[in-house]
Design a protein around this nucleic acid. Structure first.
Lengths: 291, 291
DNA sequence: TGCATTGCGGAATAAATGATTCCATTGCCT
DNA sequence: AGGCAATGGAATCATTTATTCCGCAATGCA
């Protein structure tokens, strides 16, 4: 007759009262155990209710469905859509399942925390600042990059990225080597100092020396106040928090990466044939690996 | 909210690239005409694509569904639920970024692409696999880690993480040094080889040598088929796509990091006082930096 | 280069699921 | 009481799905 436009569960419920005993058995089962339906064939459902398979099919057709699969399918959609029969009374089906797989839960929570850190980080870095820093790197003669310990990783990653854009970049894992390298720094150069807490004296000293040579210093630190940032020309800030000490570093690095990725994209799109150069470099690298 | 139990559409999209021609025909049809699927039997779908019905069934099973109806049913739910392939990254507190700020748009799109890559990557790595790999690392005598070029960065980052958990880890940026190091490898050891495309002969050789010493080899590569992965005992797979060549590496690294982060957390929570040791190590490092 | 192995896809076939037909039973109405 | 309609089950038919088998092509190895 009419199209099963509405929720099939509602429809069943509505017609339940005018049904025969057997039909009602089916209806009740579907209404109460709708989530089980997915794995039931018409035959299985019939067995479970101790009725015949044809009754199940006839039930489906009577309700206006093409057949049993159509009913089943519609109910599946309905559940997925969130329609619930218990509209009134309880406060909705807020209970989010999803935790069937322990990994999903883990990944989900991790992912959420990361997103949060990334957003916070984005918010505390005014776009104007980020733009200025990107511009400074873009126009720089040389870019020096240093970071100790764990900070060395993102430092190196970023240095690699810049190199691929044909930006002359000097990176060291080591403060001593960096001290030597910046001997050649000039006014046109930029120094990026990665230091989560911005406390290391060695890095502060390098920053000071660099500024004596009139180069621009960019600090990359956690958003809390710290000496490194205090003496830098520009600051990139990272915000990441978690009580679990083993999670926090993950968030810090993710948020930092996000920030650096944005700067990388800005550089790519700053004109100056950056993209062409990048492609050319990637191509050359590919050639190098393949012979 | 959080991640849907498992979006079949995402999964199909993630694996599309490593499919055969016929499978890809099916995948494309499903991705593009998912709404039509409801009225197609496996036979009809096969006819529409001019392929055999058995191929459709095999396709379904290969993706991990019980059979064609299961696939069809799952996709129906997925559509009803509202996740489509384009809108996949519906994060919780997304808060649509103000479009007036060019940075927000950039960050938003970047963030969305990353989320997608991370989700795809999670989907193509069966939890059981990830667990096994984590367990192998957990129980290993020594862990060797190598990655060349850009792959060296995440390799090193992961090596650092493991070291903090008191897992004896040997990392090199260099294949030659690694060749020397694995001379001491034994049956109880694990080798992690990072290689985006899994094509480098040098790394394949190292893998072979390592296996001759009966160690376990874990490949960490893009999800496409590749020689490195073919000969590894375990494989971690990364899925990340973007037409923009300057964006793709960012996505690759983000997705990879996400995967490694999960393993790190699994290790932390595997018992064995990992967390205590981590805290102790962090404490010692802090002491080292402050005085 | 040539041989073995593997994996893929299609045709045929088996198994299952679903739909229909037919019939016995029941209850109801005249 | 007898006819009538409706119901539900058994049996049957039709469709759909799953499996098996086979040829072919690509890949790896000697």
């Amino acid at each position: 007759m009419n199209l099963p436009a509405q929720s099939p569960l509602l429809k069943i419920r509505a017609e339940r009262d005018q049904m025969s005993a057997i039909e009602r058995r089916i209806a009740d089962f579907i209404l109460e155990e709708s989530h089980l339906l997915r794995d039931y064939s018409s035959q299985q459902l019939a067995n479970a209710l101790k009725i015949s398979q044809s009754s199940v099919v006839k039930f489906s057709q009577k309700l206006g469905f093409k057949g049993y699969p159509d009913l089943k399918y519609s109910i599946g959609e309905s559940i997925a859509r969130g329609d619930s029969v218990e509209v009134a009374g309880n406060g909705g089906t807020a209970g989010v399942p999803a935790a069937d797989d322990p990994h999903s839960a883990l990944a989900g929570s991790l992912w959420q925390s990361k997103s949060l850190a990334e957003q916070e980080t984005r918010l505390i870095n005014p776009s104007a600042n980020v733009d200025r820093i990107a511009a400074a790197i873009d126009k720089a003669g040389k870019v020096f990059i240093i970071g100790l310990g764990e900070d060395g990783i993102p430092a190196r990653a970023f240095a690699m990225r810049l190199s691929l854009l044909d930006i002359l970049t000097v990176h060291h894992f080591d403060a001593v080597l960096m001290t030597a390298s910046i001997a050649s720094a000039t006014k046109a150069d930029v120094l990026l100092v990665f230091s989560e807490h911005g406390q290391q004296p060695a890095l502060c000293k390098i920053g000071r020396q660099f500024r004596e040579r009139e180069g621009r210093v960019v600090s990359v630190t956690r958003h809390t106040a710290n000496p490194l940032r205090a003496h830098a020309d520009h600051a990139l800030l990272v915000s990441a928090h978690d009580e679990r000490t083993h999670i926090q570093p993950l968030l810090y690095q993710s948020a930092l990466r996000h920030l650096l990725d944005m700067i990388f994209v800005l550089l790519c799109e700053s004109g100056r044939d950056r993209l062409e150069r990048l492609d050319a470099n990637l191509e050359r690298i590919r050639h190098m690996l393949e012979p």
